[in-house]
Design a protein around this nucleic acid. Structure first.
Length: 142
DNA sequence: GCCAACGTTGGC
DNA sequence: GCCAACGTTGGC
């Protein structure tokens, strides 16, 4: 099962918002690379929620409950006939008791290949299975 | 279709 | 608040 990191500004939509909503459409992803990553997601995949700016930490785990499917806010299709934009639905799984900070990830050294560190602006990125395992160990889940 | 200019994001 | 990185836009 695949694993991803979804980045969000907590001022806009935080893990607490997701926990309150029980489920949300992860929309507003316009970046082409992030869109590509979202297209690869499947129902049941893991989604780590990362807060940028004030927190700069992974604060919770969610799972993909639907998707990807065409984003009604980005109508139309590409030249290839694919939807221009897709989105997924996610539901909260657990909030981390101790958020995994960006600082900790950098200090660890084993996460250097992670998109979060190498390409900080990317808002949706895949997590290799080995690193997903590490994150679970650090988070004390799974 | 290429490339420079510009805007946005996010870490520090 | 600043700066670096990167994506996007628009002129050619």
């Amino acid at each position: 099962m695949a694993s991803y990191i979804l980045k969000s500004e907590p001022a806009v939509y935080s893990y607490a918002d997701l926990a309150a909503d029980k489920r949300t459409h992860w929309d507003g992803v316009r970046n082409a690379t992030a869109q590509q990553n979202m297209r690869a997601m499947k129902k049941g995949d893991t989604a780590w929620i990362y807060h940028s700016q004030t927190d700069k930490a992974i604060v919770g785990i969610a799972k993909v409950v639907k998707g990807p499917y065409p984003d009604p806010d980005q109508p139309g299709t590409t030249a290839k006939g694919d939807p221009k934009g897709v989105l997924v639905d996610i539901a909260p799984v657990a909030e981390l008791e101790e958020p995994i900070t960006l600082k900790a990830l950098k200090a660890d050294g084993r996460f250097d290949e992670l998109g979060l560190i190498r390409q900080s602006r990317l808002s949706v990125m895949p997590v290799p299975a080995a690193l997903d395992k590490l994150l679970r160990e650090m988070a004390g889940v799974g």
